[in-house]
């Protein structure tokens, strides 16, 4: 009799465990979906090409070219056969740097940050070199990759 009882008890135990595991999983699945709803999806960033210069612009003059991408000032710097495109925002506290041809440097007037032609820090407080864009040259045209953004209230 005791054996029988044990068997029954064990079966009963497995049954109950099964039922309440299923219930637990259902509740988990429910809350998982709720959480997914609350936390907006982080979309993978995508990029598009943005024309910043034609190669021939640098034929005579190797001076960095300043243009704006939206409101961000950007410098296109030719070197050897390549181009480096850097954000003109100082990495220290976000002022706009300017190119000083006679001193061959980018200079930030706010706290006297200094960067060389390639954007490396050569003086002053900036913690890191100027931010760089990914560059691609096609058909003698210099493009940078700019993040895709959409005009929507939800961006």
């Amino acid at each position: 009799m005791a054996e029988e009882d044990k068997k029954v008890n064990r079966r009963e135990f497995f049954f109950k465990t099964g039922v309440f595991t299923a219930l637990g999983l259902a509740i988990l699945a429910f809350f998982r979906n709720l959480l997914l709803y609350i936390f907006p999806e982080r979309k993978e960033k995508t990029f598009h090409k943005y024309l910043v210069a034609h190669e021939k612009e640098f034929k005579k003059d190797k001076r960095p070219k300043q243009i704006n991408i939206g409101k961000t000032p950007v410098f296109v710097v030719p070197y050897d056969d390549h181009y480096k495109v850097m954000s003109g925002i100082c990495t220290h506290l976000g002022c706009i740097v300017k190119w000083e041809q006679d001193k061959d440097r980018f200079f930030c007037p706010c706290h006297k940050g200094e960067f060389d032609r390639m954007g490396n820090v050569i003086g002053g407080p900036p913690p890191r070199p100027l931010d760089e864009f990914k560059v691609v040259v096609e058909n003698h045209k210099v493009y940078v990759y700019v993040e895709d953004k959409v005009r929507s209230p939800w961006a």
């Binding site: 039922v19 309440f20 299923a22 219930l23 999983l25 259902a26 699945a29 429910f30 998982r32």
Partner: peptide, 15 residues
């Protein structure tokens, strides 16, 4: 309890 088990599984599938 059977019903709880069955509906839990159905709900999981639905979710």
């Amino acid at each position: 309890q059977w019903l709880i088990g069955i509906f839990s599984i159905l709900l999981i599938v639905a979710l």
